[in-house]
Design a binder for these strands. Structure first.
Length: 419
RNA sequence: GUGGGUGUAGCUCAGCUGGUUAGAGCACCUGGUUGUGGCCCAGGAGGCCGUGGGUUCAAGUCCCAUCACUCACCCCA
């Protein structure tokens, strides 16, 4: 019989790793809450139209990476490739804007994209992110950026680099796009096939090219900052001012172009040099037009998404602060004592003490080895004699000392004890 | 979609120019005398050497195919 295994690009998170995940999740919940953000959870499957309209048909994500299928009722369903569109959908659907002018939301969960897997890239991967929906002021951008920065920083990732840019207002971008196209037209024969296609559909993306010849051409292309309106410029400078106030270091990178259609004004990305080619840990920006385009009111918003697998890769060498929980292993070689020991185990657990009770009926030596392997602080040992006497041998496994205690006195003993 | 690398025990790997019953470390199990862990010692279990075909007296080792994993490109978290 052939073994069934995880499908390409998906991974099990095994017990040896799940503690790291829990730590990261704890850090996310904590930092987001400290900034006044509340969690939102949305379905993993959505109407495909949400992403076609929200993320954009021309993006790689939707045009070639999205898992979609036609359901039994002929509707087209997609596994979500990202969470901003779903969160906005929920905001619009439940009219969250009606409850308060500003919604500060965060999320954690899996996303799906059908790509060739490599280091830091999977077909099922986990993202967390925040979305601040309602404010069009630069302090909101700075707040969102700082949450991302703080989570990564608090989690102990070194060599973080924050790049920021602004792609300006709609007017600015329209003018700039036209100028860029005019500039690039004479170079069309020298452009790659992909870039030629982009020239028609999404010329800004050409700025992000990795092709050496194209990089040279781009170097003397018109710069977007020359097309900012007065307001765009002030806005971007104010975001920078607040980042300075928050003591968050950043680099201005005008070539930072994000591959999703919905961004406006501020865009940003945090990366780490430590993790291979896929070095973006977190990316986001302002998306003032998205809510309206998904059927809501004309509400401004800003947010980011971060890749949890990549963060964990970047923290590989991190020292986990092992919060050793109190643990007792119950060693029993006399079945007649098992009933009373069940009772004792239950009572100890009610004191928030981790209790593991042998269920393999192994030899005493094997059970003691197991207790050691589980890092138990104490072993409660009951053999033939103790079963008769209604006592236990209580062994402190750190010190190696052992005492006889009446079964009836055990709970009181542990109540008075601090681990 | 395109290109490179790698497939030997649960894990990390060794196996020279093809030559007997395929090895190590870690992990696992059992012991080291009366019912007690860690350290140490002894023993044990565990591999159709990714799969299929070919060359050969002989293939883990050479050739071909195939699959899987992995890294990178594109793009993204």
């Amino acid at each position: 019989m052939k073994m069934v295994r995880t499908i390409k690009g998906t991974h099990d998170i095994l017990p040896a790793q799940s503690g790291d995940w829990q730590d990261l999740e704890t850090q996310i919940h904590k930092t987001a809450n400290l900034h006044g953000y509340d969690e939102i959870r949305t379905p993993i499957i959505e109407d495909a139209a949400l992403f076609n309209r929200g993320v954009g048909e021309e993006t790689d994500i939707v045009s070639k990476e999205m898992y979609s299928w036609i359901d039994k009722d002929k509707s087209t369903i997609s596994l979500r490739p990202e969470l901003t569109a779903p969160v906005v959908r929920a905001y619009v659907q439940h009219n969250l804007g009606g409850q308060s002018l500003l919604q500060r939301l965060y999320y954690i969960g899996p996303s799906f994209r059908r790509e060739r897997p490599q280091k830091g890239r999977q077909r099922q991967f986990h993202q967390f992110g925040v979305e601040a929906i309602g404010s069009d002021n630069p302090e909101q951008d700075a707040e969102v950026i700082s949450i991302g920065w703080n989570i990564l920083n608090n989690f102990g990732i070194n060599e973080l680099e924050l790049n920021i840019s602004s792609i300006g207002s709609d007017d600015c971008r329209t003018n700039y796009k036209q100028e860029l196209i005019n500039y690039l037209k004479p170079f069309i024969p020298q452009l790659s096939e992909v870039s030629q296609h982009r020239l028609k559909h999404n010329p800004l993306r050409i700025l992000d090219t990795k092709n050496k010849d194209e990089i040279k051409i781009i170097e003397s292309a018109p710069k977007i900052e020359n097309f900012y309106t007065k307001e765009d410029e002030t806005y971007f400078l104010t975001v920078q001012q607040y980042l300075d106030d928050l003591e968050i270091p950043y680099k201005i990178n005008p070539l930072l172009v994000r591959g999703l259609d919905y961004y406006t004004q501020t865009t940003f990305e945090i990366s780490s040099k430590k993790i291979g080619a896929q070095d973006a840990l977190l990316g986001g920006g302002r998306y003032d037009g998205l809510i309206k385009s998904l059927g809501g009111k004309d509400v401004p918003a800003v947010g980011f998404a971060a890749g949890m697998e990549r963060i964990l890769i970047a923290t590989d060498s991190r020292k986990r602060t092992d919060k050793q929980v109190a643990c007792i292993y119950i060693v029993c070689t006399d079945l007649s004592a098992l009933g009373p020991l069940q009772q004792i185990a239950k009572n100890l657990r009610e004191l928030d003490i981790k209790v593991i009770l042998e269920t393999l009926r192994r030899s005493m030596k094997a059970q003691m080895r197991e207790a050691n392997k589980k890092n138990a602080n104490y072993a409660i040992i009951v053999g033939e004699q103790e079963a008769i006497d209604k006592t236990v041998q209580l062994k402190n496994l750190n010190e190696g000392k052992q005492d006889t205690i009446n079964q009836g006195e055990l709970i009181a003993y542990f109540k008075s004890l601090t681990f």
